[in-house]
């Protein structure tokens, strides 16, 4: 990371410190990040700051991004896989203004990707960092409300309770019905909540080339998965972990084996399934892949809209 340079701030607006946070705060956060990397999956407490956005809008992720951002970084922000939803646009704008860094919607071009609820479909490389926004970092929280107790359970590796949750799923639904925030065991030691990403993305977390950083602003925790770390999704011998599969390809780009969102097209029951990763979908379409719905007028409107924003 190079020295902070603020390029795009107009004189009449005063000037922010590079990437909004003061340097002491960034040092504090970086120390927490380094500790998190050293102990994969362990939740490191940190002195989370008030950010100019409400809790639940990515205050943890924003602080992590601010602490690692350098002037030569290229930032991509996605929310539910999409570059053009409110949260993504707002955070991208925030760093354009406070750090003056380059931003992109292209997964390939980004050096730092801040995400809420998805991991890009394209495999990430070791020059990239993925920053997650985490609402509730403690995977044991739903069954054990006491923080003192959950800390002890992590320390002593008492993770039976995690399986109680999965047991309940099977007992009540006939299968493990947890589809997001699906608990994982990191590096054979800590059990971790991979933030509310769909469990579809869990296999991507395992042995990922890129560094993964998780920030929870309200709960004041940072944790990390270093590159090439073994991450196992918890399961039962007779109910093994499996990801959901979709019986149709993406309506716009015909992609298979990707995570799809259902989109309602009209009030007459019209709907289609499209890639949740908007960048991935656009790139495929640009390369000539067309899905069965690509010619549908309603879908054209939707895809046209996306393309405009993406450009």
């Amino acid at each position: 990371m190079t020295l902070p340079v603020s390029k795009s701030i107009a004189p009449d607006e005063g000037s922010y410190n590079f990437a909004y946070l003061d340097e002491q705060t960034k040092r504090m956060i970086r120390r927490a990040i380094l500790k998190g990397i050293a102990i994969p999956g362990y939740q490191v407490p940190f002195a989370s700051r008030e950010m100019p956005m409400p809790y639940g809008w990515g205050t943890g992720g924003v602080q992590v991004t601010a602490a690692i951002l350098g002037a030569d970084d290229t930032l991509k922000v996605i929310d539910q896989g999409s570059d053009d939803t409110t949260n993504a646009v707002a955070i991208r704008g925030f760093f354009e203004k406070t750090a003056g860094v380059a931003t992109t919607t292209s997964t390939e071009d980004a050096s730092i990707i801040q995400t809420r609820h998805r991991i890009p479909e394209m495999a990430l490389n070791s020059n990239q960092i993925l920053v997650f926004q985490v609402p509730i970092p403690e995977p044991l929280r739903f069954l054990e409300p006491r923080e003192t107790e959950t800390r002890k359970m992590h320390a002593l590796e008492e993770y039976g309770l995690m399986h109680v949750k999965l047991y309940e799923d099977i007992a009540k639904n006939g299968h493990i019905a947890t589809t997001y925030a699906y608990p994982v065991e990191v590096n054979g030691r800590y059990v971790m909540d991979p933030s509310p990403t769909p469990k579809f993305d869990n296999p991507k977390i395992d042995n990922m080339e890129a560094l993964q950083l998780y920030g929870a602003g309200r709960e004041k925790r940072i944790y990390a998965i270093p590159p090439y770390t073994k991450v196992k999704s918890l399961d039962f011998d007779d109910y093994p972990f499996e990801v959901q599969s979709f019986d149709k390809p993406c309506g716009l780009c015909n992609a298979e084996g990707v995570y799809l969102d259902e989109v309602i097209l009209d009030d007459k029951g019209g709907r289609m399934f499209v890639c949740s990763d908007s960048d991935h979908c656009e790139e495929r379409r640009a390369n000539g892949h067309l899905g069965p719905m690509a010619a549908d007028p309603a879908a054209t409107l939707l895809s046209g809209g996306t393309q405009e924003k993406g450009q």
Binding site: E158, G160, L161, H163, V164, Y167, E168, I170, A171, K172, D235, F236, D237, D238, Y239
Partner: peptide, 18 residues
Amino acid sequence: SAGANVGERLMAVGQRHY
């Protein structure tokens, strides 16, 4: 559930067969 209440100790000692 009652079943999970009874099963918790088993899962705590490493039983992984639902």
